[in-house]
Simulated assay, not measured.
Amino acid sequence: MSGWIRGRTLATLCVAASAALALPAGTAEAKPKETLSQAKAKLAKLNSQVDHLDNDYNKAKEQWAAADKKLKALKASVKQQRQSWAELRVRVAQMAASAYKNGSNGADIPALVSAKDPQTVLDQMSAFAQLSKNRSTELAQFLNAAQLLQRQQAQAEQGTTDLVQKKNALLAKKKTIEKSVEQQKALVKKLGPAADSGGGDSGPVASNCGGGYHGSATGKARTVLEWAYSKCGTPYLYGGTGPRYDCSGFTMKAYAAAGRTIPRVVPDQYDATTRVTPQSALSPGDLVFFDNLGHVGIYVGGGKFIHSPHTGSYVKIDSLSNPWYSSHYVGAGAL
């Protein structure tokens, strides 16, 4: 190859290399910037996911609390039953001592009643036959007490295992929901005022409630709505039942203010109410459900409802004609 050709080739390669170095890193694979509508759709989807996670989390908390209460009651019963069994054991021991002193059959009984646990007693049931002729009532009580104590101890052990499993499941759900909540917060911050639509509303909205409820509801329904309006502007909190609320915690506490008890989670609140159809038949104070029973609010009249929407938002009034809520409407329920 001539020197002229070699020189020209090298020059070409140098120019190409310089051009490549001048290009910004990653230009060829740069992702298109997310549009406003895409970000809002992403937030709406995330809000829906967290609503359902929140229901699962609240249900898991209920189940854990119920299991914990049951286990405590069972342990108290075991303690009482153990005392009863110990008292009966003393009585049987006295019977055995008397039988032994008088030369009656019962040589194995002293060792039997000295047992420290009911299983030992149950394993040696045949020994009871030697005292059963004249003392059947006392022996039957002792045997029954041993059986009951053994059963309750086994239940308590299983209950402890179940409680640990429920607690671990609860902690796992909590971790999942907290991760999603952080994503919500980041998106709400990114969108700012633009988040205020399509199920992605945000920002303090105390004025949205007009200074309190002034509608036509009476009786308990009015009490429910007056309480709900008094919380307008309160920031949302997943799992919250006061002083900050999630959607079902908000409705539960609103009804509690009127002396009405409703379940904790949205699907259970739906099941506990009587269906109201068509939508035009809604009355102030009825519950309105959305998003495959992931969300709930309280109808206030005029096609509007009050609710605690989601992370980044506040207790506020919304319209059933809002595109997101109208398209995700499930139904309504009255107590």
Rank of each mutant, 00 (worst) to 15 (best):
G294Q: 04
L171G: 03
D162S: 13
G211D: 05
G233V: 02
R244H: 13
G199D: 13
Q165H: 11
A256Y: 13
Y236C: 04
S327Y: 09
A281L: 06
T274L: 05
P235Y: 06
R275P: 10
T223L: 07
S280V: 02
S98W: 07
K316R: 14
S216P: 08
D268R: 08
L293E: 09
P110Y: 06
P204F: 11
L143W: 11
N292L: 05
S37L: 08
G239H: 06
F305K: 05
Q119M: 04
R135Q: 10
G3S: 15
Q49K: 08
L163H: 13
G331T: 04
R260E: 15
V188N: 00
P204E: 14
W85E: 15
K189N: 01
S248V: 08
D51P: 07
G198A: 06
V50P: 01
Q81M: 03
D318S: 12
A60N: 11
Y100K: 11
A332G: 08
G301L: 08
Q124S: 09
A11D: 12
Q155P: 00
Q153N: 15
K185P: 00
A44T: 01
S207E: 12
A66S: 13
S202V: 00
G240F: 05
S283L: 11
G239S: 07
A334K: 12
W227E: 08
T277E: 10
L282Q: 08
S327D: 15
A96I: 02
L335N: 11
T9F: 12
L139R: 04
D268F: 06
V265W: 09
A194I: 02
I109L: 14
P118D: 08
G333W: 01
K33R: 08
S18K: 12
Q119S: 03
R260N: 14
S280P: 01
I109S: 12
T176K: 10
S321W: 01
Q155M: 04
A16Y: 12
K166T: 02
V300D: 11
A256H: 11
P118W: 02
P278L: 01
L191Q: 00
P284I: 07
N168P: 02
D123I: 01
N134F: 07
V330Y: 09
Y270G: 10
A66E: 13
P24T: 00
